[in-house]
Design a protein around this nucleic acid. Structure first.
Lengths: 341, 341
DNA sequence: TTGAAAGCGCTAACAA
DNA sequence: TTGTTAGCGCTTTCAA
C-alpha cells in the first residue's frame, strides 16, 4: 500500500495540504483546533512525512554522517555514543559509516552521502589535507582526532598527554623509549610522535621510532619484534590495540612486562584492563568528544547557508580535550636493556 | 554556491534535461556520443545527482540501514564489515545505527529512517514480535541473530552449537552447569537457554539459570556472584562480554578458572583470547552472516513492489549458520562444587 | 489563520 | 535516440 501523503491527510482533515505541512513544520502558525484535527487525521492514516520531499525543498535533511576510520576499533565506541546522544537531543539522525582505514573508501563513503546529509564528522580521517579543505569548502565538516586549519575540530591534547608519558618514563628511571608508529596516514600518530620526540630531551630521554604498523592486535607481533631489536626498556604504541598485540608477542618470546620492558598505549579502550598485565595507557573523554563534535557541526549548520568556517577571519573552533595517563601494570621501573635475541 | 542540476548540465551539453537524467540512470539508452558530451559537461560543472529528488521519483534510495542492538559489542564488528562489503558491491550505502539495547531507541531509530532507506537489517533486535511483523508488513526487513516467521533471517545454529557445549561439559565430567542469562528481550539469549536446557538431560547434565543480566563486562560481577551461590562447577554466560566480567569477579574472589569452575561464552569476540585465562567460547562466521543478511535484503528489494515475504505461501529464507566451539583455557575437568562462600 | 499555486531536482511516460 | 511534459511529496510565497 502507498504511504499516505499530506494530500491524504488534508482531505481527511478537511483542510488544504499546505495547512498540513504547517501543522508539522511550524505548528505555531496554525490554529490550535485545526492543528489537532490535522494531527488526528495524520495519526489515523499513519502518515509519516517524507524526508526526501522535505529535503528537496529545504535543503536540510536533519541527518549527519559520522565517518569512522575503523569501526572495529573500540576507541570509537564512546565517541559514537556521545555523538549519538547529542544528535538525538537535536532531533537529528546520526548515521555511522566505516572507512576501513582506507582513504579511497573514505572518499567513496563521503561522496555517497554528500547530498543526503547536512554535514560530516570525520573521525581520524585518513584523507589528505587538500581533500579535506576541498570538502570543507562545499560542505559542513568537523574533524575528530585530527586538526587542520581552518576546520573546526576536537582532539585530545597530545602535547600535555605526551608530557605525562615522558614524565612517567623519566620518573621510573628510563633513559630511552621506542615509539611503535601507526599508519602513515594517521594525523594523530604523527602528532604523538612529534610531541614525544620534541619533549624527550628535556626529560633526559632518547626517542626512537619503529614502524609504521597497522594498529591491530595481530600486527603487534611485528611491532614487538621491531622494537625488541633495538634493545629498549620502554615502548609506546600508536594505540592500545597495537600495544596489546605487542604484549602478547613479548610474552611469547619470554620478555616480561614490565620487568624487562614497559609498554604503554593510547586511547584506554576497554580491553586495556582486561589483558594481563593490564595496560598503562593515555585516555581521554571520548564520549564528550563525540558530543562536542556534533555540537560544532550543529553550530556550522546554523550559520548562513553557503558560509563555511574560514571564509572570513573568524576564529575556528579547535577544541583540545585533556587526557589522563591511566597507570596500570604494564609500566614499571627501567630494567637493563633486554638482551637482543 | 548552488549545486548544479541536470538543467545546468543539459544547457551546457546542449541537450534536454531528460537526456542528462538518462545518461546517468540508463546510459544504454543514450547515444554514445551524446553520453560522453553529457558526462563531460557534468564533470566540468561538478554535478552530482541529488539522491532525494531521485528517491522522491523512484522510491529507491540505494541505501540500507543496519540497526545494531549495541554497537559497543565487538560481536557486531565482523557482521558490520561483511554487510558493508556486500552492500558496497551492490552499490548501496549501508548506514549503521545504534539501538543501545533499548526497544524504544530502536523503534525511534527505525522510524527516523523509514522513508530514507530501502530496507532494514535488524541485528539482535529487541523489538517485540508484533512490532517486527508490523514493520515487515510495510517495509523490507531482514533479521540477524533472531528468527521470527515469516521474516527472512540469518542466525547462528543455536541447536548444534549448544550441543557442542553440552558434549564438552559432559566429556569433562561436569554433572551440572549454570547459565547466566542475558537481557530479557534477547531472542538469542532465550534460544540459547532453551537449547541448553533441552539438551542437558540427554547429556546427563543438570541445568540451572541465573539472571537476567545486561551483558557487559561490568555486569559480570553480579552474574558471578549469582552463579557462585549455587555452587556450580560450570558456567555458560549469555555472551563473551558477560563471561569476561564473570572471570574477573571470580579471580577477585579467589575462585580459580578452570580448576574450580569452567567458564564459557558465546560469540568469540577478539577479547576472548586476550583475557587470562583465555576464554572458551562458541563462535560463528559473523562476516558471512553480514554478507548474507545484505543479500537477503537485496533479494527482497528485487521482488515486486508492495510484495513482502509471507504475503503468499513462498518459503521464507531462514538461514542458519554453523558454529564452532573454540576451546581455550577457561574450561577444564569438573572440580568438586565450589564451596559456598 | 488558511488556501492556491509554484517549484525543489529528478524520472518516466509519451511523442517526435 | 532524443525532447516534452507531467508529476513524486513537500515547503513557501502570496492572497484571501
Amino acid at each position: 500500500m502507498q504511504q499516505p501523503t499530506i494530500y491524504d491527510v488534508a482531505r481527511r482533515a478537511g483542510v488544504a495540504p499546505s495547512t498540513v505541512s504547517r501543522a508539522f513544520g511550524r505548528p505555531e502558525r496554525v490554529g490550535a483546533r485545526t492543528r489537532e484535527q490535522v494531527l488526528a487525521a495524520a495519526k489515523e492514516l499513519g502518515y509519516v512525512p517524507n524526508p526526501h520531499a522535505r529535503a528537496l525543498q529545504t535543503g536540510r535533511h536533519r541527518t549527519i554522517a559520522m565517518v569512522i576510520s575503523d569501526i572495529a576499533n573500540p576507541h570509537f565506541f564512546e565517541l559514537i555514543r556521545g555523538a549519538e546522544q547529542r544528535a538525538k537531543a537535536a532531533e537529528n539522525t546520526l548515521v555511522i559509516v566505516n572507512a576501513e582505514e582506507s582513504p579511497t573508501i573514505e572518499r567513496d563513503q563521503i561522496n555517497g552521502l554528500l547530498r543526503s546529509v547536512d554535514g560530516f564528522i570525520l573521525a581520524a580521517s585518513r584523507l589528505p589535507d587538500d581533500d579535506l579543505r576541498a570538502l570543507a569548502s562545499k560542505h559542513h565538516v568537523v574533524l575528530v582526532d585530527r586538526e587542520l586549519a581552518p576546520l573546526p575540530s576536537v582532539a585530545m591534547d597530545t602535547g600535555s598527554g605526551c608530557r605525562q608519558i615522558l614524565e612517567h618514563f623519566a620518573s621510573l628511571g628510563h633513559e630511552e623509549f621506542t615509539y611503535c608508529a601507526g599508519p602513515p596516514g594517521s594525523w594523530m600518530g604523527a602528532a604523538r610522535w612529534a610531541a614525544l620526540k620534541a619533549g624527550a630531551e628535556e626529560h633526559g630521554l632518547r626517542a626512537r621510532r619503529v614502524g609504521p604498523y597497522t594498529p591491530t592486535v595481530a600486527n603487534g607481533g611485528a611491532a614487538a619484534d621491531g622494537a625488541l631489536r633495538s634493545g629498549t626498556t620502554a615502548l609506546v604504541a600508536h594505540n592500545d590495540l597495537l600495544a596489546i598485540g605487542i604484549m602478547r608477542r613479548l610474552a611469547d618470546r619470554g620478555v616480561r612486562v614490565p620487568a624487562d620492558i614497559s609498554v604503554l598505549g593510547f586511547d584506554d579502550i576497554f580491553a586495556a584492563e582486561l589483558v594481563q598485565p593490564t595496560l598503562t595507557t593515555l585516555g581521554g573523554p571520548d564520549a564528550h568528544a563525540g558530543r562536542l563534535a556534533v555540537e560544532l557541526l550543529l553550530d556550522l549548520l546554523k550559520a548562513p547557508h553557503g558560509h563555511h568556517v574560514g571564509d572570513d577571519g573568524e576564529s575556528p573552533h579547535r577544541i583540545r580535550l585533556p587526557t589522563s595517563l591511566v597507570l596500570r601494570e604494564s609500566s614499571g621501573p627501567a630494567a637493563r636493556p633486554a638482551p637482543a635475541p
